Structure formats: structure tokens, C-alpha cells
Amino acid sequence: MPDNDRSASEPTPEQIRFYGTTWVDHSAGYALRRVGLGLGAVVAAVLGAFLLRFAYEGVAVAEVGSWAELLLVLAFAVCSALAFSRTLGSYSRRPDAKDASVESSMRSIRLVGFVGVLLAYALRTVVEAPGEKLARAEYEQALARHRRRRAARTGNPAAKRRSRRR
């Protein structure tokens, strides 16, 4: 994002996957990219649901029992719901150090519930680029800090008048 107004020391915006820094000013096909990625996530979720259906049919053909089929459906449903809610919530806050262990333990649940992750991504693209709200808040805070520092250092200190003592 080369602006003529920006100085070299001004903070640069964080890049978001698939969007780069176009989220800052919504340029370079940002809206089209959001629509395309949202539709792609929905299509991937539908294909994933078909994949899970085939996995269920494989268990049903094996005739392991209705309890196993019920457990399989329950596991996919619970993991998808947990993955959906965790993924949607992760777009609005950065995990801190104590959340790191929780997030690492959620990897397997997100893997099994990948349909929920894809649906959360698709739902978030309806509003904005996933993670844009968080990145925008951090970028605006960094810009405000930069402007305060620059305003405090305006002028040439050598050109200031020295007070005379009498």
C-alpha cells in the first residue's frame, strides 16, 4: 500500500491471509475476494459434509452397531459446533499465553469439525474479512501512538530559543 502521505517510520498494516493489506482501504478487488472466498468456503463445507456422509455410510455398511453410528454422528456434530463457535470467536480477539494450551488442545476438535470451521469462515466473510476487525483496531492504535510520538517531536530543537538567566 504505497501512499505518498505515509512516512517511512509509520507503522504498516498486518497482512491477512488471502487479502494482504487490501482490508485497510478495501481496494484491489477486496469485495470480490470476500464474495469468492465466502462462496468457496460454503462449497468446501458442502463437499466436507458429503465426505462425512460417506464415512457414516462406511460405518453403517460395516454393521458395527447402531451405537457406533450414533457416536459417530454425535462426534461430528459436537466437534463441528465447537469448532464453529471457537473459530468465529477467534476472529475478534488475539489468544494470550494462557489460551495457547487451550488452542493447541482444540486442534483435533477443529480437524474433526472442519465443516464448522468452514461455515464460520463463510459467515465471517459476509461481514468483513476474517480477522479484519482485530487487525484494524491494532493498526489504528499503532497509528495513533505513532502520531502522538510525531506530534511531541515537531520542530527543530536546535532552532528553539534558549531562555536567558539574569
Rank of each mutant, 00 (worst) to 15 (best):
F18Y: 12
Y19I: 00
Y19D: 01
Y19R: 00
G20A: 04
T21P: 08
T21D: 15
T21A: 11
T22G: 12
T22L: 06
T22W: 10
H26S: 14
S27N: 10
S27H: 12
A28T: 08
A28D: 14
G29T: 00
Y30Q: 06
A31G: 11
A31F: 15
A31V: 13
R33L: 11
R34P: 03
R34H: 00
V35D: 14
G36H: 12
G36F: 14
L37E: 10
G38R: 05
G38W: 00
G38Q: 01
L39C: 10
G40C: 03
G40D: 13
A41R: 02
A41C: 10
V42W: 01
V42D: 01
V43W: 07
A45G: 06
V46N: 04
V46T: 03
L47H: 07
L47M: 11
L47V: 08
G48P: 11
G48L: 06
G48I: 08
G48H: 11
F50E: 13
F50T: 14
L51Q: 10
L51Y: 15
R53D: 15
R53S: 15
F54E: 12
F54T: 09
F54R: 10
A55Y: 08
Y56T: 07
Y56A: 13
E57T: 14
G58V: 07
V59D: 04
A60S: 13
A62H: 14
A62P: 06
E63M: 11
S66D: 13
S66R: 14
W67Y: 08
A68S: 15
A68K: 05
A68L: 12
L70S: 10
L71E: 13
L71H: 08
L71F: 12
V73P: 08
L74A: 07
L74W: 02
F76L: 09
A77T: 15
V78W: 02
V78Q: 00
C79Y: 04
C79F: 01
C79E: 03
S80I: 01
A83H: 11
A83P: 05
A83W: 05
A83E: 15
F84C: 09
F84T: 07
T87V: 01
T87I: 00
G89W: 05
S90E: 06
S92W: 12
S92Q: 13
R94C: 02
P95Q: 07
P95A: 09
K98N: 06
D99K: 04
D99A: 02
A100K: 07
A100R: 06
V102I: 12
V102M: 06
V102A: 10
E103S: 14
E103L: 05
S104M: 12
S104E: 10
M106S: 02
R107D: 03
R107K: 09
R107T: 11
R107Y: 05
S108R: 15
I109S: 04
L111V: 02
V112M: 00
G113C: 01
F114I: 13
F114M: 10
F114D: 04
F114S: 11
V115Y: 02
V115C: 10
G116L: 08
V117C: 04
L118K: 02
L118G: 03
L119R: 01
L119A: 01
A120K: 02
A120S: 00
Y121N: 11
A122R: 03
A122T: 07
L123C: 04
L123M: 10
